[in-house]
Computed example of a mutant assay.
Amino acid sequence: MIRFADFMPVPEPSRTKVKFNMRAGVGGSAAWDLLLDDEEGWLDLNRYRDRGPSNTYGDAKYVLSFAQLPSHGPQYFVFGGFYEVTALEPAVFDGTGYALRALPRYAEYTKRLVIRLAKPVGRDVYLRRYESLQDGPLSPEVFELSPHVKLGGFPGYQHVLLPHASLQRIVAYGEPSWREALSSVKGVYVITDIATGKLYVGSASAESDGLWTRWSAYADLRNLTGGNKGFEALRQTFGDDYIVANFQYAILEVFDPKTRAELVIERENFWKDALASRHHGMNHN
């Protein structure tokens, strides 16, 4: 067991806090999603200041920030950065109350280092003082240092909601749990252009590796459209960045790999009608 404090010493322990981010407020985005795909959202989560004395940086000069890692469980957190903290003047509460400056120390561990706490952290103790953390009830230890950015395990077919950038990472690294799950089924999926709200319903009905093969085509860095003519028109007009920033992927139905292609296509057409993706979306047949 490697103690957290031994692995990540800091220059001024008495003026350093450790923040365990879980969600961006009640009903907000998961901290892990913000860390992965929304840099500004992640910073806002850490710049937020509320009125509770235990939920502010106080006299802290530095903060080590972590995001809860849902694929591992409530006691696991992945490193999100080491920052210098400056309180804004005049003081701002219930909003952006701090300026953060990212420091190079431990930058190579960002999105790779996972720590495990002795017990789940509660909302009332999500911000702790570094100097008392190690020997307190949370007693963090180093669980894993991944060779590349952590992607999170497969969450279950009914919970898949992937921004395009995350899909690219999963395919590029061949993340095992995602590859196994998506390769094991045929399915009907929906792509949402979050900039316009338009939908595209598609299916993986014949590929030997099911949804994995189909979605891998969308993640191909040489052609982000998967050969779709409508997507290609968007790419020609707005560029690759538009697709990366605005496309997200979800699964509507899954089928056993032995399911006849005709049945999968029949269900694809059902969803096109149900979601009106031909009349108001991006389907053209």
Rank of each mutant, 00 (worst) to 15 (best):
131 E>S: 12
282 M>G: 06
24 A>D: 14
184 S>V: 00
65 S>G: 13
105 R>I: 08
113 L>E: 11
139 S>Y: 02
276 A>H: 15
49 R>G: 00
82 F>L: 03
280 H>S: 13
160 V>P: 00
245 A>R: 12
172 A>R: 13
212 W>S: 12
119 K>E: 15
85 V>W: 02
123 R>C: 14
129 R>E: 15
214 R>E: 09
64 L>T: 06
126 Y>W: 14
230 G>T: 05
76 Y>M: 02
215 W>E: 06
282 M>F: 11
38 D>V: 04
235 R>Y: 05
199 L>K: 15
193 D>E: 09
285 N>D: 10
83 Y>W: 14
52 G>P: 00
232 E>L: 14
251 I>H: 04
285 N>G: 15
105 R>M: 14
22 M>F: 10
26 V>A: 11
279 H>L: 14
45 L>W: 00
151 L>Q: 08
71 S>V: 06
163 P>R: 10
42 W>H: 11
214 R>C: 06
45 L>Y: 01
285 N>Y: 08
59 D>I: 05
77 F>H: 09
281 G>I: 05
89 E>L: 09
190 V>A: 14
257 P>K: 10
137 P>D: 10
8 M>K: 08
131 E>M: 03
6 D>K: 09
243 I>G: 05
136 G>A: 14
139 S>K: 13
7 F>L: 00
114 V>Q: 09
212 W>I: 08
138 L>P: 01
283 N>Q: 13
130 Y>W: 13
245 A>S: 13
190 V>P: 03
35 L>H: 10
152 G>L: 00
221 L>P: 06
27 G>Y: 06
27 G>D: 05
47 R>N: 04
180 E>C: 00
206 A>L: 09
127 L>C: 07
209 D>H: 15
271 W>Q: 12
168 Q>D: 00
57 Y>I: 08
85 V>H: 07
49 R>N: 05
148 H>G: 01
228 N>L: 02
212 W>N: 13
227 G>P: 04
171 V>N: 03
126 Y>G: 06
239 G>N: 03
165 A>V: 07
3 R>Y: 10
145 L>F: 00
74 P>I: 01
98 Y>W: 07
79 F>S: 04
98 Y>R: 12
19 K>F: 12
184 S>P: 00
94 D>L: 01
154 F>W: 00
60 A>T: 08
84 E>T: 01
53 P>E: 12
